[in-house]
């Protein structure tokens, strides 16, 4: 048990925190979405990494293989990826519409525009 053996967790946590930080710290609406996507990606890693066994193969019963990786996380994450893409696509579509309506994709400019218009 050392830090290296938990490598995948460290990677997950780094991605997670980076993503969240970008969402919170950036005012640019597209950059926020990028952060969100990174944040979601960290989840994919969280699910998939523990399912992998060193030396394990796909769970197909065949001679010579006795160690299998867990396939279920892959299936789950396929779904999660689809959800993630949908969120990203919708978010970007909204940004396009926001830019049409406000002529800006900077959060502070949009809020300022709101305050001018009662």
């Amino acid at each position: 048990m050392n830090a290296a053996s938990h490598f995948s967790y460290w990677a997950t946590i780094c991605l997670m925190v980076m993503g969240l930080f970008i969402v919170m710290a950036r005012a640019n609406l597209i950059k926020k979405l990028v952060g969100l996507a990174i944040f979601q990606t960290s989840i994919y890693l969280l699910y998939i990494a523990p399912g992998k066994l060193i030396g394990g193969t796909a769970p197909i019963i065949a001679d010579g293989f006795s160690v299998y990786s867990n396939p279920l996380p892959h299936v789950l994450i396929l779904t999660a990826i689809v959800v993630g893409i949908a969120v990203l696509a919708l978010g970007l579509a909204l940004v396009v519409r926001i830019r049409e309506a406000y002529d800006s994709i900077e959060e502070d400019e949009i809020l300022a525009a709101e305050e001018r218009q009662p």
Binding site: V23, F39, L94, V95, I98, A101
Partner: peptide, 17 residues
Amino acid sequence: DRRALVASYQYLVMGTI
């Protein structure tokens, strides 16, 4: 209202988190 777009975007970010 165009503010619906911003509201929706904010909800999208918060909801996704």
